[in-house]
Design a protein around this nucleic acid. Structure first.
Lengths: 341, 341
DNA sequence: GCCGACTACTAAACCGCTCTAGTGACTGGG
DNA sequence: CCCAGTCACTAGAGCGGTTTAGTAGTCGGC
């Protein structure tokens, strides 16, 4: 038979469709004996639920949506996203929930996708990343009435649930460490200033510099790409009074920066200390290995997945789950600055 | 209104559901005037089709499935996959087809997912990667009767369609170049030997070595991870008569290998030439930048997407699309070997 | 002026599942 | 012994589309 339906099972067992549905969904309304019999026949006939039919009755779609608004070509090289994705998958697939992934060019397109997926009943919830400072997506998704989990810091996201880590604390730990080593001129190659997390990190750096009495500290925005990371590094290392330490907002730019240092004959960590704000194999396969803020991105993904599933099961109840603050893994790219001022 | 259905539109326009369906799908059966009126009202009410309802009638699911059988934690760092994914997205989303992505642990689980998705009507087709030498998946998917596109080389994949590049040719071009530079001892840090593409590359290397009269040429299998890439490199560089050139099956291992060379004080390209069989920013952000076999993985993704869509539109017709052979991009990691034998 | 073909549309079945209202059998309390 | 309550189950509506069979109305030809 092409594809058994509950009707086929019902006929074979000699009960009604309804009874089969109850049995298969663990709902009361059938005796244990009948239930066992139905389950056995369903197994024999290799029956599987038709997701579309289920979703039609207003039930679950069995999928969660993740829309990423970055140029498709650059996404490819962000180890963070790939790791996150893996974690999400692991968390979701354990409950047979699929991940619907879409990469779009900008926020406008992203909102359009949310609208479409919601009205098409394609997903049961959304996972949102890269929250902007004043993000229009939040209002839209709230209005859609679809559960959503925001991945990010302790920022504004209205009534939406979130999973976050304290990147302010994280940035402070970096500056504390560099200051303790004796660095006075620290540069921060930041990400897109429109993002909340970029803003938080820049603010944390400023605050921390004030606390340590450092005057020569600055944040330089980029688009997170290796190209801008390299260009910014080149610029920083070319000017007089160049920094003795650079903090990069992601591992990709940090590695690119290390490449530039090599190319310009600046010794790492002798003349320049490098810290990455994100960790992955990238930081470990280069030589010298980079000191980096490390966290379990895979675990972060599974945590987001779990929060999402809980939210779908019981909507309305807002959840905010804080994950451990990333820890600084000190490797070979940081050292006290050379004596020369 | 919560969510307009074609019934609502029908009522408002004053026609039947059927007429609305015809109009919205560009099917004959309604006059142009009525069609225009219906479309206008649908637009006004912001109507969107309910995918589940559509799929129920035996129509398209509107999604394509991609199942990757690799340990979830390692997938994260393969620039190749991320790029491919981006390309797939771009190609599919242009036609409003979603990509259903799932990462599983092994081929057994992968097959189970194919079975499930097919019987759940969740997807209209499958995209398969990493074909093994004698791959059970091919038979299963053929049996399922769901369109499928295999991404890989000119190997066996039964009646399934494919998109492929000639990696044999590619490997030959690498060895030719290294031989021309004067290298006689070449090592190949290969991937998983169970994969068809790994086998093809190993065979191409062997054949090429014979043709050039090289006797000290060998392929060493790994699992594609940076860890094994590094370990294998360490082993190669530690033994007497070490190779003067190493070819890595992916960029990640090549970068890891470069790190090991740095750590062991082996100059690149002075004492050792390095070639990567795959390209991404990784090879360019390190210093020295790595000579690599380069191809447009993003474009490869869009090509697969297009083949998939064509296959869904017109199943049964097997397609085999060959993509350009990757070209060698020579950068700073290759040079003639040092004089010492 | 009548028949047949065509057009533009309607009514309703159908896809596979869920869920509610209803039914008949059995049980137990008064 | 009767009625209420429970249990196990059935019948059928409904989800939002697609699609088929059927039906008016128009038109052209002879």
């Amino acid at each position: 038979m092409a594809r058994p339906t509950i009707e086929d099972i019902a006929r074979r067992v000699g009960v009604s469709k309804g009874a089969v549905s109850f049995a298969l969904n663990g709902r009361p309304g059938v005796s244990e004996a009948t239930r066992a019999r139905i389950l056995q026949v369903a197994e024999e006939m290799n029956w599987r639920p038709h997701t579309a039919a289920r979703a039609l009755g207003g039930a679950r779609a069995g999928a969660v949506g993740l829309v990423i608004a970055r140029p498709a070509r650059t996404l490819g090289v962000e180890p963070f996203f790939a790791q996150l994705l893996s974690g999400l998958q692991a968390g979701l697939s354990a409950h047979s929930v699929a991940l619907e992934l879409l990469v779009v060019e900008d926020t406008t397109a992203e909102i359009e996708v949310y609208r479409r997926w919601a009205s098409e009943h394609r997903v049961d919830g959304f996972i949102m990343v890269d929250l902007k400072v004043r993000d229009t997506r939040v209002d839209v998704v709230e209005g859609l009435g679809v559960p959503a989990v925001v991945l990010g810091g302790p920022g504004r996201h209205g009534s939406l649930s979130s999973v976050w880590a304290d990147d302010r604390e994280a940035m402070l730990s970096i500056v504390d460490y560099l200051a303790a080593l004796g660095h006075r001129r620290i540069a921060h190659v930041a990400g897109l200033p429109a993002f909340q997390h970029t803003q938080r990190r820049m603010r944390a750096l400023r605050d921390s510099a004030r606390r340590h009495g450092l005057t020569d500290v600055s944040s330089l925005p980029t688009d997170f790409s290796d190209a801008e990371g390299a260009a910014t590094t080149r610029m920083l290392l070319s000017r007089p009074g160049r920094p003795t330490a650079i903090v990069y907002d992601n591992d990709l730019m940090a590695v690119a920066g290390l490449g530039v240092a090599g190319e310009m004959g600046v010794a790492v960590p002798g003349d320049l200390s490098i810290v990455a704000f994100d960790d992955s194999v990238l930081t470990r396969i280069v030589h010298p290995a980079l000191t980096a803020l490390t966290r379990d991105t895979f675990a972060l993904g599974t945590e987001v997945a779990e929060t999402m599933l809980a939210l779908i099961a019981e909507p309305g109840l807002r959840r905010d789950r804080r994950t451990p603050t990333p820890r600084l893994a000190v490797r070979e790219s940081t050292a006290p600055p050379a004596l020369a001022g």
